[in-house]
Design a protein around this nucleic acid. Structure first.
Lengths: 221, 221
DNA sequence: CTGCTTCAGTGATATTGTCACCGATGGGTG
DNA sequence: CACCCATCGGTGACAATATCACTGAAGCAG
């Protein structure tokens, strides 16, 4: 199936000059991966540049003792730079990328990636910008984890995960993994939220009952 | 004062082809900054690529309520990519780079940086590698902060800061800032270390009394 | 020596994480 | 339908870390 000229769908690529977009379209191969697939991880570094057309990739890190924290998400229009970091770095590290939904992405072989970065200044800036965004995402994570309160972070994450709607499907364990915390902690905070009328919950499901209050709480970050 | 052909002093630049090193030498301007100078920070993004010849830059992040955490150090032979990230990112973020010692660095104007990354594949890989190293440094920080024990992290940091010697000059507050913790916490852990014979301390100064034991503790990370 | 500033020590309390365990839920399956 | 059972969530006790409020000690400057 053809996905058409995806370069016009995203701000990042739309602003590239026509000949760069043409070259991108020509060189890229479309890749589809079902939800739950590991895109990269320890010992699995794809040797190509990845640009996301559709879906979400959740990038997380897991500690020795099994606790997990979500570092950031790669959304449609983003590229996944950790894969390239993967390639360069020999060091063992334990970040992994998981297709959180069904994913459509294009891959750019290393050689073509190199050629494009060499010959097209605009593509180069695009790549550097992608790197910078990730660096800044990580700065944010460090700040949150080192200095943030868990209730504030959870409120923030609930709002983010719910998106437009007031509902989200997530177990306490999944939310704990989002924040790099423990299930019991999340359970208690959620109970507290419930008592305060901010949410209601059933098994595996949370409804935001008072978005403004949650937003206020999240803003005290 | 001339600093000679610095490109031959560092593995990262020495492996570059001669013509790239020549161009680097020609385009770069030497910069000297005294200890304690802020190299970059909120509202202060130098518009050039930075390569460190001598000294150390400490890159840290500070929370609203004043707590600080060291993200990584830029050593001689490294380049400082957060400055370039700075430029691209509009978002407010609160990382800063401080000259921890007197620093000698060369700066590459943005235009020349662009030209070199365009025309020299080896320089490009050099830059990408620098970015990747920082990303991985940050992954390590996230892992430590989210999952690491404070005594383990402190032992590790003491060994790192002491270097070859068994002595280091640092207040408890400074060590707390290294790890993004609080002074009282560090004081207590250091007292514990002292009781266990791992260190001795006087005001502003710590002596490592049992490196192997500290190393063992640090290794339980 | 005196006074002052910075540094370190301490107890009380709050927050977060860990451990061990239990009960509840809800989707199969006989 | 009734039972099974894996997964999910709740709970108390305790440990680790952070915060707060305060104290005393060390060393420098006059």
């Amino acid at each position: 199936m053809n996905i058409g000229d995806w370069t016009e769908r995203f701000p990042g690529t739309r602003s590239l000059p026509p000949q760069v977009r043409k070259r991108l379209l020509d060189a890229a191969r479309v890749m589809r991966v079902p939800q739950g697939t590991q895109i990269f991880g320890p010992g699995k570094a794809p040797d190509s540049f990845l640009f996301l057309i559709e879906g979400t990739i959740r990038v997380s890190q897991t500690s020795e003792n099994g606790r997990e924290i979500v570092l950031y998400r790669v959304e449609a229009g983003d590229s996944c730079v950790l894969t390239t970091a993967c390639i360069l770095a020999e060091e063992a590290y334990n970040a992994e990328g998981m297709a959180e939904t069904d994913v459509v992405a294009v891959t750019l072989p290393r050689t073509e990636f190199d050629r494009l970065s060499a010959e097209e200044a605009s593509f180069r800036s695009f790549v550097f910008a992608a790197y910078s965004r990730r660096l800044i995402d990580l700065l944010r994570v460090v700040d949150d984890v080192a200095f943030g309160r868990i209730d504030v972070r959870l409120a923030d994450r609930l709002l983010a995960l719910a998106g437009q709607t007031n509902d989200l499907a997530a177990t306490h364990q999944q939310l704990a993994s989002e924040l790099g915390s423990a299930r019991e902690v999340i359970s208690r905070v959620l109970q507290d939220f419930q008592k305060r009328g901010l949410i209601t919950q059933t098994r595996g499901h949370i409804t935001l009952a008072d978005r403004p209050a949650l937003a206020r709480l999240a803003a005290s970050a």
